[in-house]
Nucleic acid binder design. Sequence first.
DNA 1: TTATCGTGCAACCAACGGTTGCGTTAGTGG
DNA 2: CCACTAACGCAACCGTTGGTTGCACGATAA
Lengths: 115, 115
Amino acid sequence: MIDDDLWSAVGDPTRRRMLDLLLADGGGTATSLSEQLPVTRQAVAKHLGVLDRVGLVHVTPTGRERRYEVDSDQLARAVAQLSAVGATWDARLQRIKRIAERIQRGKSDSGADHS
Amino acid sequence: MIDDDLWSAVGDPTRRRMLDLLLADGGGTATSLSEQLPVTRQAVAKHLGVLDRVGLVHVTPTGRERRYEVDSDQLARAVAQLSAVGATWDARLQRIKRIAERIQRGKSDSGADHS
DNA sequence: TTATCGTGCAACCAACGGTTGCGTTAGTGG
DNA sequence: CCACTAACGCAACCGTTGGTTGCACGATAA
């Protein structure tokens, strides 16, 4: 149901920043990204490898540069998963809230469905 | 702007599963959770420590048990942050899509603002 | 009191994010 | 053509973290 690979790819704060930068600048290289981040080029390169492996970016080698760009479709998919998890938890929180209110009113509601 | 502690707490797949279970069962102990997860009690205990540290759960020691429950407010805050990041990326993706369409129509739009 | 259940603490291991150092390749200029 | 520089990849190393096993300790049940 949940693609843990996508999640953990997006779970790292540095990788989120990288996606932000790639989106803002319309692409970039390991070197260009490392200049805007508090980590070395090598660290950025490893992260780009991770992002590439899960399809969130794709690379175009041109001369001595390797330009990376965000894959819009895949990122949209990741966003959808974030929203999905958020929606699930939101729903459960609201259900719990309703039950709590019902109990407050003295109606103990022992037969609630759960799952 | 983004609370990285909350993010990374929720970023771990096992911790997400734990939150799911705690929400579904209305609370639980390290032992009860470990029975429904593919990890040992000690691993669960460590995760509960992390979740407790960022305020996503709170504990009630009763006898020889330590019962954990989800903190609804804090989880709601985490959900809000997920949505916020999702919304940001969504907006950028749509902006890029619009620009791409504009270029397709031959209107090169070199003066678009970015950031 | 003795046995058992739930915890906590400590040591250890593998994976990961990060760094430094070095070798390689593609452009650039004398 | 040859030297130099820029961007890159690879490898070794370190600290943190998710996970395990083993053990000792307090609370309950027999």
